[in-house]
């Protein structure tokens, strides 16, 4: 009934699969190590005091820095957070605490859908809604970035709150504490580490976004000049500098990439250690 060499064939297939699985893992991780290596290797020569205190150099000018971009990025992220965090937090609370509500299922689903909308589209949306009326501005960029932030915060807050056991809520409710106070004082407090984690991860994400920034602010070479004007941005600078033919700008691109990757991966790593510390 059984072909004589069939078992051998099965074993060979098994070994081949084993190799393929580890080969895929290597192929997936090589880019990570290569990116880290190259960004550090090529970014370090760009780093000096001027890099942190001087604004973008003009074409042909030597030296210069990214101080204005760091300033602009912080302001833009800050404004985006002011819009995005409250909305995300309250939405997450709604989804977790009123999950039996019909609206919850719908919002949860479309929250996932929103998180899958390409960031360039969100940029075009902000362009249509804001840039066309008040012009390229920090406000437009922050609006776009906050839309990217909201689904991330909403989701992590919802998941964090759901981890707080039901009996803790019931205990508080049984004491006569109103439900909203239970949520704010007990559930949210209990989950605050995870909530902070979600917020930090969403900030890391928008710090690296460049497509929506491009279509809402464009490239800005100077210092911050008001919320209704554009501001410089680190992630976008990398794009502009890299696509330019000027050697000095390309060096600055790698330097900016180093700063950005330290910020983004730093937040990610810190958050992981932070979460693991709980257990």
């Amino acid at each position: 009934m059984r072909k004589p060499n069939y078992y051998k064939l099965r074993l060979i297939k098994d070994r081949v699969m084993f190799l393929l699985v580890y080969l895929s893992l290597a192929l997936a991780l090589i880019p990570l190590f290569s990116i880290l290596y190259e960004v550090v290797q090529r970014g370090i020569p760009a780093i000096n005091l001027d890099f942190f205190i001087k604004p973008t150099p003009t074409v042909g000018e030597k030296g210069g820095g990214v101080a204005n971009a760091i300033q602009g990025t912080l302001i833009t992220i800050g404004l985006a957070s002011v819009i995005g965090i409250p909305v995300g937090l309250m939405s997450g609370i709604f989804l977790s605490e009123y999950s039996e509500h019909k609206l919850s299922t719908i919002i949860r689903f479309f929250n996932d859908v929103l998180s899958g909308v390409p960031s360039i589209i969100i940029g075009v949306f902000a362009y249509a809604l804001i840039v066309r009326s008040i012009g390229f501005s920090v406000i437009a960029a922050a609006f776009a970035l906050s839309i990217i932030m909201i689904p991330i915060v909403t989701r992590t807050v919802e998941e964090a709150l759901k981890l707080i056991p039901m009996n803790i809520r019931e205990a508080a409710i049984a004491l006569g504490v109103p439900r909203w106070k239970t949520v704010v004082a007990i559930v949210l407090r209990g989950a605050r580490k995870a909530v902070v984690t979600g917020i930090l991860l969403s900030i890391a994400r928008i710090a690296g976004e460049s497509a929506p920034v491009l279509v809402t602010m464009g490239f800005w070479r100077w210092w911050f000049a008001g919320l209704d004007r554009p501001a410089a941005n680190l992630a976008l600078n990398i794009f502009i500098f890299a696509m330019s033919p000027f050697e000095n700008w390309i060096v600055l691109a790698w330097g900016s990439a180093l700063i950005l990757i330290l910020l983004v991966l730093g937040i990610n790593i810190a958050v992981r250690i932070f979460i693991r510390g709980r257990y």
Partner: peptide, 24 residues
């Protein structure tokens, strides 16, 4: 650890993939 590395890969900004793509 490996899961964590894969998640880091997801956290690298798009523009840095582009930079690395162009020059490396």
């Amino acid at each position: 650890v490996i899961s964590f590395l894969v998640e880091l890969l997801a956290a690298v900004p798009s523009v840095i993939y582009g930079l690395w793509g162009m020059f490396v």
